[in-house]
């Protein structure tokens, strides 16, 4: 986790320096705000990873000498198929079209989106079927 955190922190630190230089040199606000956002985007997850890396043993993927056996076992639960991403995508498009045409598609979109969200959550709880 140390390398991951360091990469993010280095990127964040770069934007921090650039934001300061840019602000004092140009005095322009929108660019400074966006650079500060980029700084925080590196800082927050980067320091979180680094904080964790000091509190855990190196994972097998962090250890250059790790044997394959050390990583054997359950990696995680992966759904093979699910209809809900498709439904959620359709509902998002439906809501999006309402922003253009101001029509009833927004209501349909929100109802279908709610159904899809409920479907996804139920699927996760019971192990998932199509």
């Amino acid at each position: 986790m140390k390398a991951e955190g360091t990469v993010l922190l280095v990127i964040g630190a770069f934007f921090g320096v650039v934001a300061i230089v840019y602000w004092f040199w140009s005095g322009e606000t929108s660019g400074t705000a966006m650079l500060t956002g980029a700084f925080l985007l590196g800082l927050l997850p980067g320091s979180y990873y680094l904080w964790w890396s000091r509190r855990m043993r190196p994972r097998p993927e962090d250890d250059p000498h790790a044997e394959r056996e050390e990583g054997a076992g359950v990696v995680g639960a992966f759904p093979s198929s699910s209809i809900w991403p498709f439904v959620l995508g359709l509902s998002a498009a439906s809501v999006g079209l309402a922003l253009v045409f101001g029509s009833w598609t927004a209501i349909v979109g929100f109802v279908v989106a709610a159904a899809a969200v409920i479907g996804v959550i139920r699927e996760s709880r019971r192990g998932g079927v199509v």
Partner: peptide
Amino acid sequence: GAPDMAFPRLNALSYWLYLSGGII
């Protein structure tokens, strides 16, 4: 050496958002 992406259903959602955006 991973079995899949970390969030497979989010991955599928990404594709459908992309396809619907492209068609629109």
